[in-house]
């Protein structure tokens, strides 16, 4: 701190010798807009332009490599009549909802477990983050093998306990396939959740717990009335991250099931990709991708309101 304050007078003197232009530049609004100009320009060029181009595409009958014709909202109407679209919508919500819930609860448990004193805590913490680090496409390839009934350790256990061979088909059964992608997503995201919440826990002042204990609060009550309210902002932020990434997930499904069996694991991103790239219907594909926007926005607004209220 002292070092900083010692340097200040020198800075000041330098500034006073400036021309009046610097005064203009120093006005809050001028400074702010100048500062933000570059990033905003960057985002406008590389997000804004493609985004509006995407909206334009969604209003066209636009086969790939072919000029488009404007057809208004017809693509969106087509989607409303497309049973796969509705299945994909349901899948995406279930996938996002369940995986996020599991990550939240599991992450909290992990954080509580880690928020105790034990040896090698830093090492454990670093190890726990590994699933978040390894490139998703590659960890998914490992899961592809682990979920094969003949090689699955779970199946071997079940068969040993008397389940008929070869045990449950993790990727062949529509429900289990959804369970599988949820498990993998949770596996990948939970440690990140947990470590972040742990950091939040460590900022809770111990005095609060002591006070609560003196007032006769049980462990569960302390969690309910002291820990959770204080953690709420950080739970909100990791949940938002998780919702955004889970909702738009692509890689995991693309590698593991490609949306099968019978579209049971098809999500917005994979379906939009297949329609745009596989079927070559850029307009229709864009309309499916765009459909994610209101859904995701709704989810996030609802989540924010809910978290604020609780």
């Amino acid at each position: 701190m002292t070092v900083v304050s010692e340097r200040l007078p020198a800075l000041g003197q330098a500034a006073r010798r400036r021309a009046p232009l610097s005064l203009v530049l120093d006005r809050e609004s001028v400074f702010s807009w100048l500062m933000m100009a570059l990033p905003l320009l960057f985002l406008a060029a590389l997000v804004g332009y493609p985004f509006f181009y995407g909206i334009l595409l969604s209003l066209q009958y636009r086969p790939v490599a072919h000029t488009g014709t404007f057809i208004g909202l017809k693509n969106f109407i087509t989607n409303l009549h497309d049973p796969i679209f509705w299945q994909v919508t349901a899948n995406t919500f279930i996938y996002t909802g369940v995986a996020t819930f599991l990550k939240m609860v599991g992450g909290l448990c992990l954080a509580l477990a880690m928020n105790q004193h034990f040896r090698m805590k830093n090492l454990v913490r670093a190890l726990l983050l590994l699933p978040f680090i390894v490139p998703t496409v590659l960890s998914t390839v490992a899961w592809l093998w682990m979920l094969d009934p003949a090689f699955s350790v779970v199946n071997r256990l079940l068969v040993a306990l008397g389940w008929p061979k070869p045990g449950p088909s993790w990727l062949g059964n529509p429900t289990l396939a959804m369970v599988s992608i949820i498990i993998i997503n949770t596996w990948r995201g939970l440690p990140f959740y947990g470590i972040t919440l742990l950091a939040g826990l460590q900022t809770v002042p111990p005095e609060l717990y002591e006070a609560a204990t003196i007032d006769g609060a049980s462990g569960l009550q302390r969690l309910r009335f002291v820990t959770l309210p204080l953690l709420r902002p950080i739970i909100l932020i990791v949940t938002l991250f998780s919702v955004i990434f889970t909702f738009a997930d692509f890689q995991l499904v693309y590698v593991l099931t490609h949306g099968g069996p019978q579209n049971a694991t098809n999500l917005f991103a994979t379906y939009a990709f297949d329609i745009a790239m596989g079927a070559g219907q850029l307009g229709l594909g864009a309309s499916i991708a765009l459909a994610m926007l209101p859904a995701l926005a709704l989810l996030i607004v609802a989540l924010t309101i809910y978290m604020r209220r609780v």
Binding site: P166, N173, T257, P261
Partner: peptide
């Protein structure tokens, strides 16, 4: 067949073949 074929992608039968499944 195996139940698992409902969830297979192109790689699956190659793997199952080499695993003598």
């Amino acid at each position: 067949m195996l139940d698992d074929v409902l969830g297979w992608t192109d790689v699956s039968n190659n793997k199952a073949w080499m695993a003598e499944q």
